[in-house]
Design a protein around this nucleic acid. Structure first.
Lengths: 192, 192
DNA sequence: GGAATGACAGATGTCAATATTTGTCAGCCG
DNA sequence: CGGCTGACAAATATTGACATCTGTCATTCC
């Protein structure tokens, strides 16, 4: 054919679509290939396994999320307010995905379970952003200056209930926002 | 028969044993009845459904846990230290159960999912104990005195990762203790 | 008459046969 | 050649016939 060769990006996009439509269990690589007008063998030219393909889609989503959050981490202005908004944005992102693309979110949950390296990396990126805000806060005298890296991780874990997929069923509880604000208050008191 | 009639307590004990042995999915009421030398119809004299029986066993376990923790909440002495020990005891209890009686712990997880009322009640009892420690801390001037009830809940939620069944697979991570201590530091800083 | 039984219908679970899907690779095609 | 195909074996999922379990209740027992 004179047509361009299949690219990794195309496969990724088709896989994302399939994942969104059918979810992590029903999505299969023959369908993905079909959507691209290609045999499934070709998909394996770009990704070694189905799990790798799924993980790549999820990784893309995580990177997108980190990119959305980064501006807040890099803003100037009161660190406390930024951290608050950053956490809210994080939670909003996850909870929106869970609500609007439950199948795709299911894929996130699956990868979360069996690709520890990817989640470690992602947690590293996000706690890095938290740490950045904390540093600013310490520099400006807003926060006390103890254990920056450790605090970032502590904040991450203390808010687990609000962003970890395992708790998605609790997110429909109308009190969830209130609960978060309580934890936020606790965290803020710990920082200032 | 001249023998004593079957008691609720006996059924509960047999059910606990069955649950421990076979887990929440394989345990069945015919076996429970058989262990008691009784027909399964008799079990239904004491519990309306299998789910209710399972929930009753779990409730008993939760009450036992709350009872074990209560002394720490009621001690006198430095509140910060007591709260720390209380949380460690809570976590230790859950993690030990998960390790040593995984089937029974599985029953806890199941009930957690579909008996919201029971977990609400249990969370209420435990946050009550936290609140008690907090009050002591405020009275002694150890803690600042803002929003006692709310703080108790906030502490509960901030430590979710360390006591919620959904996270049991993370408990084998050797860093889990370190992670908890980081969150504890954050909480403590927020209180003092 | 209060407690227990056991036969029963409907729900739920099991398991083995069957079908789909994954991942490989020798060969085709432009 | 580089990129793609499609036939294939092995792994995984689905189905449906069958077995077990749940929950009820008319009846029996002491």
């Amino acid at each position: 054919m004179a047509a361009e060769p299949l690219t990794r990006e195309q496969v990724l996009a088709a896989a994302e679509e399939a994942l969104r439509r059918y979810g992590p269990t029903k999505m299969n690589v023959v369908d993905v290939a079909q959507a691209l007008g290609v045999s499934h063998g070709s998909v394996y030219r770009h990704f070694p396994t189905k799990a790798a393909l799924r993980a790549a889609v999820v990784r893309k989503g995580l990177e997108k999320k980190a990119a959305q959050l980064l501006p807040i981490a890099e803003e100037s202005g009161p660190a406390a307010d930024r951290l608050h908004r950053w956490l809210l944005a994080l939670i909003e992102f996850k909870q929106r995905l869970a609500r609007e693309d439950p199948e795709l979110f299911g894929a996130h949950a699956v990868v979360d379970k069996d690709d520890a390296a990817l989640v470690r990396e992602h947690v590293g990126v996000l706690t890095g952003q938290i740490a950045r805000i904390l540093e600013d806060g310490v520099d400006s005298g807003e926060f006390r200056g103890s254990a920056l890296e450790g605090s970032a991780l502590a904040i991450w874990h203390a808010t687990t209930r609000f962003h970890h997929p395992a708790h998605r069923y609790e997110w429909t509880d109308p009190k969830i926002g209130e609960d978060f604000e309580r934890v936020w208050t606790l965290i803020l008191d710990g920082l200032t």
